Computed example of a mutant assay.
Amino acid sequence: MVDSAIITDNSEVLLHFDLKLEDGSAADSTRVHNKPAKLVMGDGSLTPNFESCLRGLKAGDKKTFTLPPDDAFGMPNPDNIHHMERSKFNLDAPAEVGMIIGFTQPGGMEIPGIIRAVAGDSVTVDFNHPLAGETVVFSVEILKVK
């Protein structure tokens, strides 16, 4: 019997996805290590806009969606850019432009920050999502729906 379950709220979904920028450069893919993603619709692992792309699909479906920044990872927020003292960085993790460093928040949760600039004793850290402001091309292959 062919699995014909359709993706709805609370569906368990096994899928491969590719996330690219408009210029075709790869941003993320489950195919790199041939390890499909597993998620439950509504569990927060995907934004509502990404989830809406999946609703109605079933196992065997392949589809590509182009999402503008507001429907993907949003626009960069200037309030998420912080200037820190260079002394906050140690020799094991020196601040270099382009590096992504994990910063521990007061509650213990870790958030990634991208080093955007290093000038004198000041380091500019961007806590926006790395794909904020980008139009993304989201391609999916649905493997299983429960």
Rank of each mutant, 00 (worst) to 15 (best):
89 F>W: 04
135 T>A: 05
11 S>V: 00
145 V>N: 03
33 H>F: 14
141 E>R: 11
12 E>V: 12
67 L>G: 02
15 L>E: 02
11 S>N: 08
62 K>F: 09
107 G>Q: 15
86 R>I: 13
28 D>W: 01
46 L>T: 04
30 T>W: 05
76 P>K: 07
55 R>A: 06
51 E>N: 03
103 F>V: 11
114 I>M: 09
20 K>L: 15
123 V>R: 00
27 A>L: 14
77 N>I: 05
120 G>I: 01
58 K>W: 06
95 A>L: 08
59 A>C: 09
131 L>R: 07
52 S>E: 13
112 P>K: 06
66 T>L: 04
117 A>F: 01
33 H>C: 09
99 M>E: 13
9 D>T: 06
55 R>Q: 08
141 E>L: 11
78 P>E: 08
118 V>C: 06
50 F>L: 13
98 G>M: 11
21 L>E: 12
23 D>W: 08
4 S>Y: 09
18 D>C: 14
57 L>F: 05
32 V>S: 10
66 T>Q: 15
35 K>F: 08
143 L>E: 00
126 D>Q: 04
108 G>A: 04
15 L>C: 05
66 T>E: 10
116 R>L: 12
113 G>V: 00
73 F>N: 07
128 N>H: 00
140 V>F: 01
76 P>S: 04
105 Q>R: 15
118 V>D: 07
5 A>T: 13
30 T>Q: 09
4 S>T: 11
71 D>S: 13
119 A>S: 13
104 T>S: 14
141 E>C: 06
94 P>E: 05
14 L>P: 01
1 M>Q: 11
2 V>A: 08
124 T>Y: 06
63 K>T: 09
1 M>C: 05
24 G>M: 06
59 A>Q: 08
122 S>Y: 02
57 L>S: 03
21 L>Q: 12
102 G>V: 07
108 G>R: 09
59 A>D: 06
51 E>F: 01
109 M>L: 13
84 M>V: 12
59 A>F: 01
62 K>H: 11
125 V>Y: 00
70 D>L: 08
20 K>S: 12
99 M>C: 07
64 T>A: 12
105 Q>A: 15
55 R>I: 10
98 G>P: 15
71 D>V: 06
110 E>A: 10
108 G>P: 05
135 T>E: 13
9 D>C: 03
21 L>P: 03
114 I>R: 12
119 A>M: 07
113 G>W: 00
52 S>K: 10
29 S>T: 15
130 P>K: 03
78 P>L: 04
80 N>C: 10
117 A>G: 01
5 A>E: 13
19 L>D: 04
109 M>R: 15
124 T>L: 06
116 R>H: 10
57 L>C: 10
44 G>H: 11
139 S>T: 11
45 S>R: 14
32 V>Q: 10
33 H>W: 15
15 L>R: 05
32 V>C: 05
115 I>Q: 02
62 K>E: 14
112 P>Q: 12
67 L>I: 03
137 V>L: 14
79 D>R: 11
142 I>L: 03
116 R>W: 00
44 G>T: 12
137 V>T: 09
106 P>S: 04
